[in-house]
């Protein structure tokens, strides 16, 4: 029954979503549908509400208006099918846990209260660490990791959740080139396995290569659709407004190679 349900309902459906801090809207009237198996990038200027959109969808922030459906139902019903990769700075990396402990947290959603991860969970965690080339560091304290390694740990934890829909908040921010390439490979592999991934992304120059769908956001939804259709000078101008000077290179390159 669950399977039939998932084939009909989109992984993520957002209607009229509005979020306000101190009565000032930071997201206004967002309507959005993310189709299954897509790799979607959310782009927009600073303060556009990109991270806020993820947090609102995940129920981490109160909504002022609108609703969110995950696989056609409320998030609480489908929490297990939803994975989350928060921004790296959102946690204390001096916390007394090692890499393995963090990845095992991805299994917690599958365990009833009071039950601890078992051997099977450890096997899964090990496989996920291997996928991001972090298995040799499994016993290392998380404070002794570089930025890129920390991001890989977070990704391994998300993989360990074995979800169908993933939300990632700026996974490419401040990582080394090798990690960036590894994340791109991972995203493509996840897509190939039928996962749906929604990524907040800040780097316009790579957005077109990394994602097959884009959401252009600036408090309001500017455009959402296949990258080829929405990554246009007009829509980018509309999203970034006066700050387009920063983007002139990108826009120029768009003009040169259609």
């Amino acid at each position: 029954m669950m399977k039939d349900f998932s084939t009909t309902a989109p992984p993520l459906e957002v209607h009229d979503l509005t979020v306000a801090y101190d009565r000032r809207p930071v997201l206004y009237g967002i309507d959005l549908t993310v189709p299954a198996g897509s790799l979607t990038g959310i782009i927009g200027p600073n303060g556009a509400g990109k991270s806020t959109l993820l947090k609102a969808v995940l129920g981490l922030l109160p909504l002022s208006a609108g609703w969110v459906k995950i696989f056609g139902g409320p998030l609480a019903q489908n929490a297990r099918r939803t994975g989350y990769v928060p921004q790296r700075e959102s946690v204390d990396w001096d916390f007394p846990v090692n890499v393995m402990d963090v990845v095992l947290m991805g299994r917690y959603g599958h365990l009833p209260p009071g039950r601890r991860p078992g051997r099977a969970d450890r096997e899964i965690a090990r496989a996920c660490l291997d996928q991001v080339q972090m298995l040799p560091l499994a016993r290392r304290q998380i404070g002794n990791l570089s930025g890129g390694q920390r991001q890989r740990v977070f990704l391994a934890r998300a993989l360990a959740q074995e979800s169908d829909l993933y939300f990632m908040d700026e996974p490419f921010a401040g990582v080394d080139a090798a990690t960036e390439a590894a994340i791109v490979d991972l995203l493509r592999e996840m897509k190939a396995r039928g996962k749906t991934v929604v990524v907040v992304h800040h780097d316009l120059s790579t957005a077109r290569d990394y994602f097959d769908r884009l959401v252009l956001l600036n408090v309001r939804l500017v455009a959402a659709g296949p990258t080829a259709e929405v990554f246009t000078p007009e829509l980018l101008q509309k999203t970034y407004g006066g700050r387009l000077t920063i983007l002139s290179d990108v826009v120029q390159s768009l003009g040169e190679e259609p």
Partner: peptide, 15 residues
């Protein structure tokens, strides 16, 4: 552990 280390993840896990 998870609510202390990463409350956002905990919440998204349904805790």
């Amino acid at each position: 552990l998870v609510t202390s280390f990463d409350p956002a993840l905990a919440k998204s896990l349904g805790i």
